[in-house]
């Protein structure tokens, strides 16, 4: 029973992180119809930028002030949002009318670029001023910016502050996004562009601006996920390490399983993937957790390719 509840809670925590990343994948796919392979790397950068910010601002070691965590979180979100904007502007926008395979290759190129630039050795004159950027090839340990407190205990399961915050912030952001997409004018513009970019443009929507905005929102959410993941699992691998790529991929699997292009589907898919992975790891074999996720992907693609909440589309000639 204890184990069940513990796994359940971890599953929700990890699943909500996946959901946050999956939202970025699914929004970009909904509008541009391509897999933004570089999105997983924005998540990685979110974690590493958080670490660098915390280290540079002197929050590492000792008890950090109360504003440390929100400051680092917002800083990381802002920087990654800027990065998402830049990538879209420089790499993807010129290919707006190119074949999809070219955009896909570009996305892989951007992804490799971010990973490998990220693990170059820090630039000398920046490092002298206390800012280690790029991040180098050494794994690092994220300083705990949140107090290591146990809030309460339910049948032997310790509910930690970190877990509550991870789940809480993730759900708050998802709620915010839900409101943004379904409750604001900008959100309506996003849905319109996703439905039919040409007609949307005729209706006076600035399509380029909406796409830029989508990338920024996706990157901001991924950065938040990066920060939360770093707080929950503080050991950070080097930027091009395969764990990052796998995390990004699994988040994409979540988007596909939930129904790509569907915001609510991404949330549901993220939670489902988190559950499958952690229950598989706890009750079957912990080494095969990636295998469960990818097997689930293949099964979903074969049985219901449009995803759990997606609508089946007929491809027009």
């Amino acid at each position: 029973m204890t184990r069940l509840l513990q796994t359940l809670m971890d599953g929700v925590a990890v699943g909500s992180l996946y959901a946050l990343i999956a939202l970025g994948y699914t929004m970009v796919y909904g509008i541009l119809k391509f897999i933004n392979f570089a999105h997983g790397d924005v998540f990685m950068l979110g974690a590493w930028v958080s670490f660098t910010l915390a280290a540079t601002l002197g929050f590492a070691g000792g008890a950090p002030p109360w504003f440390a965590a929100p400051l680092v979180l917002l800083g990381s979100m802002a920087l990654c949002g800027l990065l998402g904007f830049t990538v879209e502007r420089l790499a993807y926008r010129p290919l707006r009318n190119a074949p999809r395979i070219n955009v896909l290759i570009t996305a892989i190129g951007v992804s490799l670029f971010i990973e490998n630039t990220g693990q170059l050795e820090p630039i000398g004159w920046l490092a002298e001023r206390g800012l280690a950027f790029p991040f180098g090839t050494r794994p690092q340990r994220m300083p705990a910016l949140l107090p290591d407190a146990t809030l309460f205990e339910v049948v032997g399961v310790q509910v930690k502050l970190v877990d509550v915050l991870v789940i809480g912030i993730a759900f708050a952001l998802m709620g915010l996004l839900q409101w943004l997409v379904f409750g604001t004018k900008l959100g309506r513009a996003m849905r319109a562009v996703s439905h039919d970019p040409k007609t949307a443009a005729l209706m006076g929507i600035d399509v380029d601006r909406v796409i830029s905005f989508t990338f920024v929102v996706g990157s901001v959410l991924a950065a938040a996920a990066g920060f939360l993941a770093a707080e929950k699992y503080p050991s950070l691998n080097q930027p091009a390490h395969s764990t990052w790529i796998l995390l990004g991929l699994k988040a994409f699997v979540a988007a596909v399983v939930g129904g790509i292009g569907n915001v609510r589907g991404a949330m549901a898919g993220g939670l489902l993937i988190g559950m499958v992975e952690l229950f598989g790891a706890a009750y079957l074999s912990p080494q095969l957790r990636d295998v469960y996720v990818f097997s689930l992907l293949i099964v979903v693609l074969l049985v219901k390719p449009e995803g759990l909440l997606g609508k089946a589309t007929v491809e027009k000639v």
């Binding site: 991929l249 994409f252 990636d290 293949i298 693609l301 074969l302």
Partner: peptide, 28 residues
């Protein structure tokens, strides 16, 4: 065989996932 049902990017993803499954299984 399954990739018959999938278009470009999905296929890419399945092949990548397959490569990872092979790697993880060999590691075990």
């Amino acid at each position: 065989l399954p990739s018959l049902r999938l278009r470009g990017d999905y296929l890419a993803l399945v092949t990548l996932g397959f490569g990872e499954i092979v790697r993880v299984l060999v590691q075990q």
